[in-house]
Protein backbone atom coordinates (compact mmCIF):
# COMPACT_ATOMS: atom_id res chain seq x y z
CA UNK A 1 0.00 0.00 0.00
CA UNK A 2 2.84 2.38 0.95
CA UNK A 3 4.44 1.81 -2.43
CA UNK A 4 1.25 2.81 -4.24
CA UNK A 5 0.91 5.94 -2.11
CA UNK A 6 4.50 6.85 -2.98
CA UNK A 7 3.84 6.33 -6.67
CA UNK A 8 0.65 8.37 -6.44
CA UNK A 9 2.50 11.32 -4.91
CA UNK A 10 5.25 10.92 -7.43
CA UNK A 11 2.85 11.96 -10.18
CA UNK A 12 1.98 15.15 -8.34
CA UNK A 13 5.57 15.96 -7.48
CA UNK A 14 6.75 15.67 -11.04
CA UNK A 15 3.92 17.23 -12.99
CA UNK A 16 4.03 17.31 -16.76
CA UNK A 17 7.62 18.45 -17.04
CA UNK A 18 8.63 16.00 -19.73
CA UNK A 19 10.48 17.67 -22.57
CA UNK A 20 12.72 16.39 -25.32
CA UNK A 21 15.82 18.46 -26.03
CA UNK A 22 15.10 18.54 -29.75
CA UNK A 23 11.67 20.07 -29.11
CA UNK A 24 13.07 23.15 -27.39
CA UNK A 25 14.05 26.57 -28.61
CA UNK A 26 17.19 27.08 -26.54
CA UNK A 27 17.78 30.75 -25.79
CA UNK A 28 21.38 31.84 -25.36
CA UNK A 29 20.94 35.60 -24.96
CA UNK A 30 17.98 37.81 -24.15
CA UNK A 31 17.60 41.53 -24.62
CA UNK A 32 14.96 43.59 -22.82
CA UNK A 33 13.88 47.05 -23.97
CA UNK A 34 11.15 49.38 -22.83
CA UNK A 35 9.61 51.78 -25.29
CA UNK A 36 6.26 53.58 -25.45
CA UNK A 37 5.06 51.88 -22.32
CA UNK A 38 5.71 48.42 -23.76
CA UNK A 39 8.29 45.76 -23.09
CA UNK A 40 10.14 44.42 -26.08
CA UNK A 41 11.93 41.12 -25.63
CA UNK A 42 14.49 39.87 -28.16
CA UNK A 43 16.05 36.42 -27.94
CA UNK A 44 18.86 34.61 -29.73
CA UNK A 45 17.78 31.00 -30.24
CA UNK A 46 20.06 28.11 -31.25
CA UNK A 47 19.12 27.24 -34.79
CA UNK A 48 18.52 23.73 -36.12
CA UNK A 49 21.29 24.32 -38.64
CA UNK A 50 24.43 23.55 -36.71
CA UNK A 51 26.48 26.58 -35.68
CA UNK A 52 23.78 29.08 -36.50
CA UNK A 53 21.32 31.05 -34.43
CA UNK A 54 18.19 33.09 -35.00
CA UNK A 55 16.80 36.27 -33.53
CA UNK A 56 13.17 36.50 -32.45
CA UNK A 57 11.33 39.33 -30.75
CA UNK A 58 7.99 40.03 -29.18
CA UNK A 59 6.19 42.95 -27.51
CA UNK A 60 3.76 43.18 -24.66
CA UNK A 61 2.35 45.45 -21.99
CA UNK A 62 4.16 43.42 -19.37
CA UNK A 63 7.38 41.49 -19.46
CA UNK A 64 5.45 38.21 -19.19
CA UNK A 65 3.30 39.12 -22.18
CA UNK A 66 6.35 40.05 -24.21
CA UNK A 67 7.86 36.64 -23.45
CA UNK A 68 4.57 35.00 -24.46
CA UNK A 69 4.65 36.94 -27.72
CA UNK A 70 8.12 35.54 -28.48
CA UNK A 71 6.95 32.05 -27.59
CA UNK A 72 4.02 32.35 -29.99
CA UNK A 73 6.39 33.04 -32.85
CA UNK A 74 8.39 29.87 -32.21
CA UNK A 75 7.42 26.39 -33.38
CA UNK A 76 9.13 24.80 -30.36
CA UNK A 77 8.83 25.63 -26.67
CA UNK A 78 10.89 28.59 -25.49
CA UNK A 79 13.56 27.29 -23.12
CA UNK A 80 15.35 29.80 -20.88
CA UNK A 81 17.20 27.29 -18.67
CA UNK A 82 20.55 27.74 -20.36
CA UNK A 83 20.42 31.47 -20.97
CA UNK A 84 23.90 32.94 -20.58
CA UNK A 85 23.33 36.67 -20.88
CA UNK A 86 20.50 39.09 -20.34
CA UNK A 87 20.92 42.64 -21.56
CA UNK A 88 18.66 45.34 -20.24
CA UNK A 89 18.44 48.82 -21.67
CA UNK A 90 18.83 52.02 -19.68
CA UNK A 91 15.10 52.76 -19.89
CA UNK A 92 14.14 49.37 -18.45
CA UNK A 93 16.66 49.87 -15.65
CA UNK A 94 15.44 53.34 -14.82
CA UNK A 95 11.85 52.07 -14.58
CA UNK A 96 13.01 49.31 -12.27
CA UNK A 97 13.83 45.66 -12.89
CA UNK A 98 11.15 44.38 -10.51
CA UNK A 99 8.92 42.80 -13.20
CA UNK A 100 11.84 41.22 -15.00
CA UNK A 101 13.42 39.86 -11.86
CA UNK A 102 10.19 38.44 -10.45
CA UNK A 103 9.66 36.52 -13.70
CA UNK A 104 13.17 35.10 -13.54
CA UNK A 105 12.73 34.09 -9.91
CA UNK A 106 9.35 32.45 -10.44
CA UNK A 107 10.32 30.50 -13.56
CA UNK A 108 11.82 27.36 -12.03
CA UNK A 109 13.72 26.30 -15.15
CA UNK A 110 15.81 29.50 -15.09
CA UNK A 111 18.97 28.97 -13.10
CA UNK A 112 19.71 32.60 -12.20
CA UNK A 113 23.40 32.31 -12.91
CA UNK A 114 23.47 34.18 -16.20
CA UNK A 115 25.24 37.49 -16.65
CA UNK A 116 23.22 40.66 -16.45
CA UNK A 117 24.40 43.60 -18.54
CA UNK A 118 23.12 47.07 -19.11
CA UNK A 119 23.45 48.77 -22.47
CA UNK A 120 24.07 52.48 -22.27
CA UNK A 121 22.44 54.85 -24.75
CA UNK A 122 21.32 52.05 -27.11
CA UNK A 123 18.72 49.33 -27.34
CA UNK A 124 19.51 45.85 -26.18
CA UNK A 125 18.18 44.54 -29.47
CA UNK A 126 21.10 46.33 -31.16
CA UNK A 127 23.52 44.35 -29.00
CA UNK A 128 21.79 41.11 -29.98
CA UNK A 129 21.99 42.08 -33.64
CA UNK A 130 25.70 42.87 -33.14
CA UNK A 131 26.19 39.42 -31.54
CA UNK A 132 24.36 37.75 -34.43
CA UNK A 133 26.54 39.51 -36.95
CA UNK A 134 29.70 38.64 -35.05
CA UNK A 135 28.93 34.99 -34.44
CA UNK A 136 32.29 34.16 -32.85
CA UNK A 137 31.94 36.89 -30.23
CA UNK A 138 30.61 36.00 -26.78
CA UNK A 139 29.84 38.47 -24.06
CA UNK A 140 31.95 36.67 -21.49
CA UNK A 141 35.00 37.63 -23.57
CA UNK A 142 34.39 41.21 -22.60
CA UNK A 143 35.89 40.57 -19.16
CA UNK A 144 39.01 38.95 -20.53
CA UNK A 145 39.97 41.18 -23.40
CA UNK A 146 39.06 44.60 -22.10
CA UNK A 147 41.61 47.29 -22.76
CA UNK A 148 41.69 48.40 -19.17
CA UNK A 149 41.11 45.51 -16.81
CA UNK A 150 40.79 41.79 -16.77
CA UNK A 151 38.56 40.31 -14.09
CA UNK A 152 39.43 37.16 -12.19
CA UNK A 153 35.84 36.16 -11.58
CA UNK A 154 32.81 38.09 -12.56
CA UNK A 155 30.17 37.71 -9.88
CA UNK A 156 27.69 40.09 -11.43
CA UNK A 157 25.22 37.38 -12.23
CA UNK A 158 21.49 37.85 -11.79
CA UNK A 159 21.78 35.86 -8.57
CA UNK A 160 24.36 38.31 -7.16
CA UNK A 161 22.16 41.24 -8.23
CA UNK A 162 19.14 39.84 -6.38
CA UNK A 163 21.24 39.08 -3.29
CA UNK A 164 22.62 42.64 -3.26
CA UNK A 165 19.14 44.04 -3.73
CA UNK A 166 17.94 42.19 -0.65
CA UNK A 167 20.99 43.26 1.40
CA UNK A 168 20.47 46.28 3.63
CA UNK A 169 24.10 47.29 3.51
CA UNK A 170 24.79 46.88 -0.14
CA UNK A 171 23.35 48.18 -3.40
CA UNK A 172 23.51 46.16 -6.62
CA UNK A 173 25.66 46.99 -9.63
CA UNK A 174 25.62 45.85 -13.27
CA UNK A 175 28.34 46.07 -15.87
CA UNK A 176 27.43 48.61 -18.42
CA UNK A 177 28.21 48.09 -22.12
CA UNK A 178 28.64 50.60 -24.83
CA UNK A 179 27.97 50.04 -28.52
CA UNK A 180 29.70 52.76 -30.46
CA UNK A 181 31.23 52.78 -33.93
CA UNK A 182 30.18 49.18 -34.36
CA UNK A 183 32.24 48.11 -31.39
CA UNK A 184 30.97 46.61 -28.18
CA UNK A 185 32.97 47.32 -25.03
CA UNK A 186 32.74 47.37 -21.26
CA UNK A 187 31.95 50.97 -20.44
CA UNK A 188 31.30 51.63 -16.80
CA UNK A 189 29.56 50.34 -13.73
CA UNK A 190 25.82 50.95 -13.48
CA UNK A 191 24.85 51.78 -9.91
CA UNK A 192 21.45 50.75 -8.65
CA UNK A 193 19.37 51.69 -5.66
CA UNK A 194 17.25 48.59 -5.07
CA UNK A 195 15.99 47.69 -8.57
CA UNK A 196 16.36 51.13 -10.15
CA UNK A 197 19.29 52.58 -12.01
CA UNK A 198 20.65 55.75 -10.38
CA UNK A 199 23.88 56.42 -12.24
CA UNK A 200 27.24 55.24 -13.51
CA UNK A 201 30.75 55.20 -12.09
CA UNK A 202 34.32 54.24 -12.95
CA UNK A 203 34.66 50.46 -13.09
CA UNK A 204 38.36 50.26 -12.18
CA UNK A 205 37.92 52.11 -8.89
CA UNK A 206 35.25 49.61 -7.84
CA UNK A 207 37.41 46.60 -8.60
CA UNK A 208 40.53 48.16 -7.09
CA UNK A 209 38.68 48.37 -3.80
CA UNK A 210 36.96 45.03 -4.20
CA UNK A 211 40.19 43.31 -5.17
CA UNK A 212 38.47 40.81 -7.45
CA UNK A 213 40.69 41.50 -10.38
CA UNK A 214 43.04 39.47 -12.49
CA UNK A 215 44.93 42.30 -14.16
CA UNK A 216 44.66 46.03 -14.56
CA UNK A 217 46.40 47.74 -17.42
CA UNK A 218 47.79 51.12 -16.57
CA UNK A 219 49.66 53.23 -19.06
CA UNK A 220 52.35 55.66 -17.98
CA UNK A 221 55.85 56.73 -19.00
CA UNK A 222 58.59 54.31 -18.26
CA UNK A 223 61.97 55.75 -18.88
CA UNK A 224 61.76 57.59 -22.15
CA UNK A 225 58.96 55.53 -23.75
CA UNK A 226 55.23 55.15 -23.06
CA UNK A 227 54.99 51.66 -21.60
CA UNK A 228 52.14 49.54 -20.31
CA UNK A 229 52.32 48.06 -16.83
CA UNK A 230 50.03 45.29 -15.74
CA UNK A 231 49.08 44.54 -12.17
CA UNK A 232 48.57 40.81 -12.13
CA UNK A 233 48.06 40.14 -8.48
CA UNK A 234 46.07 42.23 -6.10
CA UNK A 235 45.18 41.66 -2.51
CA UNK A 236 43.58 44.18 -0.24
CA UNK A 237 43.85 43.91 3.48
CA UNK A 238 41.73 46.02 5.74
CA UNK A 239 42.90 47.17 9.09
CA UNK A 240 40.66 49.09 11.41
CA UNK A 241 41.55 51.10 14.44
CA UNK A 242 39.25 51.80 17.35
CA UNK A 243 39.13 55.47 16.61
CA UNK A 244 36.69 55.96 13.75
CA UNK A 245 38.56 59.07 12.69
CA UNK A 246 41.57 56.99 11.63
CA UNK A 247 39.84 54.21 9.71
CA UNK A 248 41.96 53.31 6.78
CA UNK A 249 42.38 50.65 4.08
CA UNK A 250 45.74 49.09 3.62
CA UNK A 251 46.21 47.72 0.14
CA UNK A 252 49.07 45.42 -0.75
CA UNK A 253 49.57 45.36 -4.46
CA UNK A 254 52.17 43.24 -6.18
CA UNK A 255 53.25 44.51 -9.54
CA UNK A 256 54.73 42.60 -12.40
CA UNK A 257 56.44 44.78 -14.91
CA UNK A 258 55.39 44.40 -18.48
CA UNK A 259 57.39 46.20 -21.12
CA UNK A 260 59.68 48.07 -18.83
CA UNK A 261 62.71 46.71 -17.11
CA UNK A 262 62.95 48.10 -13.64
CA UNK A 263 66.44 46.80 -13.14
CA UNK A 264 67.93 49.07 -15.74
CA UNK A 265 66.21 52.16 -14.43
CA UNK A 266 67.80 54.64 -12.22
CA UNK A 267 66.42 55.26 -8.78
CA UNK A 268 64.80 58.46 -9.96
CA UNK A 269 62.92 56.63 -12.74
CA UNK A 270 61.66 54.02 -10.31
CA UNK A 271 60.34 56.64 -7.99
CA UNK A 272 58.62 58.36 -10.87
CA UNK A 273 56.92 55.14 -11.98
CA UNK A 274 55.75 54.33 -8.51
CA UNK A 275 54.37 57.78 -8.10
CA UNK A 276 52.48 57.47 -11.39
CA UNK A 277 50.95 54.15 -10.40
CA UNK A 278 49.84 55.47 -7.07
CA UNK A 279 48.37 58.60 -8.53
CA UNK A 280 46.47 56.66 -11.16
CA UNK A 281 45.02 54.21 -8.68
CA UNK A 282 44.27 56.93 -6.20
CA UNK A 283 42.41 58.85 -8.88
CA UNK A 284 40.25 55.86 -9.81
CA UNK A 285 39.41 55.02 -6.22
CA UNK A 286 38.63 58.65 -5.48
CA UNK A 287 36.29 58.85 -8.46
CA UNK A 288 34.45 55.73 -7.37
CA UNK A 289 34.11 56.92 -3.77
CA UNK A 290 32.97 60.36 -4.88
CA UNK A 291 30.25 58.90 -7.17
CA UNK A 292 29.06 56.66 -4.36
CA UNK A 293 28.68 59.62 -2.09
CA UNK A 294 27.03 61.77 -4.72
CA UNK A 295 24.44 59.13 -5.70
CA UNK A 296 24.03 57.93 -2.11
CA UNK A 297 24.67 54.27 -2.89
CA UNK A 298 26.77 51.63 -1.12
CA UNK A 299 28.02 49.35 -3.88
CA UNK A 300 30.59 47.70 -1.65
CA UNK A 301 29.65 46.09 1.60
CA UNK A 302 31.10 48.80 3.83
CA UNK A 303 29.61 47.38 6.95
CA UNK A 304 31.74 44.29 6.75
CA UNK A 305 34.66 46.19 5.31
CA UNK A 306 34.87 48.95 7.84
CA UNK A 307 32.39 47.97 10.52
CA UNK A 308 30.40 51.12 9.82
CA UNK A 309 27.98 52.42 7.27
CA UNK A 310 29.56 55.82 6.69
CA UNK A 311 32.90 56.00 4.96
CA UNK A 312 33.57 59.73 5.03
CA UNK A 313 36.58 59.40 7.25
CA UNK A 314 38.23 56.46 5.50
CA UNK A 315 41.90 56.77 4.75
CA UNK A 316 43.30 54.46 2.12
CA UNK A 317 46.92 53.48 2.47
CA UNK A 318 48.38 51.58 -0.42
CA UNK A 319 51.73 49.89 -0.43
CA UNK A 320 53.24 48.50 -3.59
CA UNK A 321 55.37 45.38 -3.69
CA UNK A 322 57.60 44.24 -6.46
CA UNK A 323 60.93 42.49 -6.38
CA UNK A 324 62.77 45.77 -6.61
CA UNK A 325 60.19 48.33 -5.63
CA UNK A 326 58.66 49.17 -2.35
CA UNK A 327 57.11 52.41 -1.37
CA UNK A 328 54.07 53.47 0.52
CA UNK A 329 51.62 56.15 -0.40
CA UNK A 330 48.49 57.43 1.20
CA UNK A 331 45.08 58.10 -0.26
CA UNK A 332 42.74 60.47 1.45
CA UNK A 333 39.05 60.39 0.76
Amino acid sequence: MKKWILLFFCFFLVGCDFKEIRDLSIVSTMGIDFEDGKYRVSVIVISKEEGESKLYEGEGNSFFKAIQAVNDKLTETLYLGHMQNVIVSETVSKNGLKDVLSYFIKEDVIQNNFYLFLIKESFSKDVLTYLMENSGYTLSNIFKGNNMLSLKKNDNSIHAFIQDMKDEHKDPVIHSLSLQDHSLSLHSLALFKKDKLVGFTDIAGYYLLKGNMHQIYLSFPCGEKETTFSIDHMKFQTSLSNNSATHHITGNISLKENGCNFKTNTNDDSKKIKKNIQQMMQGKIDTFLRDQKKLNVQSLDYKSLFGMRQYNNIKSKISLHTDKLKEEGELHE
Binding site: F18, K19, I21, R22, L24, I26, E50, Y79
Partner: peptide, 23 residues
Protein backbone atom coordinates in the same frame (compact mmCIF):
# COMPACT_ATOMS: atom_id res chain seq x y z
CA UNK B 1 17.79 14.84 -20.97
CA UNK B 2 14.03 14.79 -20.63
CA UNK B 3 13.18 16.30 -17.24
CA UNK B 4 16.03 18.15 -15.55
CA UNK B 5 17.66 19.58 -18.67
CA UNK B 6 18.92 22.59 -16.73
CA UNK B 7 21.58 20.49 -14.99
CA UNK B 8 23.37 19.84 -18.28
CA UNK B 9 26.36 22.01 -19.10
CA UNK B 10 25.63 24.41 -21.93
CA UNK B 11 28.00 22.83 -24.42
CA UNK B 12 26.69 19.34 -23.73
CA UNK B 13 23.12 20.54 -24.16
CA UNK B 14 23.94 22.07 -27.53
CA UNK B 15 25.74 18.91 -28.62
CA UNK B 16 22.80 16.72 -27.55
CA UNK B 17 20.37 19.12 -29.23
CA UNK B 18 22.02 18.63 -32.62
CA UNK B 19 22.49 14.89 -32.12
CA UNK B 20 18.86 14.30 -31.27
CA UNK B 21 17.40 16.68 -33.81
CA UNK B 22 16.40 14.02 -36.35
CA UNK B 23 15.91 11.05 -34.02
Amino acid sequence: TTFQIQVLPEKLLTSLFYQRLHV
